[in-house]
Amino acid sequence: MKTSIRFKTKFRTFMIIGIMSSVVATMAFTLNKESEEARVPPAPIVTKDSTASVKAFKQVYTVLMSARCMNCHPSGDIPLQGEDSHLHTMQPRRGVDGKGVYAMKCSNCHQPANTPGLHTPPGNPNWHLPPADMKMVFQGRTPRQLAKQLVDPNQNGHKDMKKLIEHADDGLVKAGWNPGEGRKMPPMSHAAFKKAWITWLTTGAYAPAK
């Protein structure tokens, strides 16, 4: 009972933040020369195609590593800011739940919607970082590392493929394409990203060699 409550909490938390993640709880990996293949569950339908999968992930990766996604998936406990992904100016901390600490909680500045004007805090009702026990770091990850991480059930919030696919339409994920005045968009449209994301997942969620 205790465990299931904890799981639920964690799960919900991850759902609201995470920009991405991948495949299924029962998933395991086998190595081959160029890529790693994920064993995916029966549904949704997977047509294994390592070439198409890796190609799709490379597209996904450009989005995840863009400032809009990576800035809230830092390697440390301080988010990043700006197109150059520098440390967030006043160094707010992740906190246990990813929502900041003390007088520096994300929502103290980040409003439910973008604040008008240049250099004002972008907004979302659920603005936060991944929580401390599921950091889902993007910063510094190679495509291979990130792909593996996204499909590691212990690092992705225990999402199955259905949930992962749904996650492309998560409110905070989509906030990346509504970045507030003066900020660059991710390198492709949300539709193109979603297509690449689903393609990657449904062709076997292969990880690139590097």
Binding site: A103, K105, N108, T115, T120
Partner: peptide, 18 residues
């Protein structure tokens, strides 16, 4: 005016909002 300096901090439902 852009949540950089904190001079405008008040408590909104007990949180230190700008």
């Amino acid at each position: 005016g852009v949540a950089q300096c904190g001079a405008c901090t008040v408590h909104l439902n007990d949180e230190a909002v700008r």
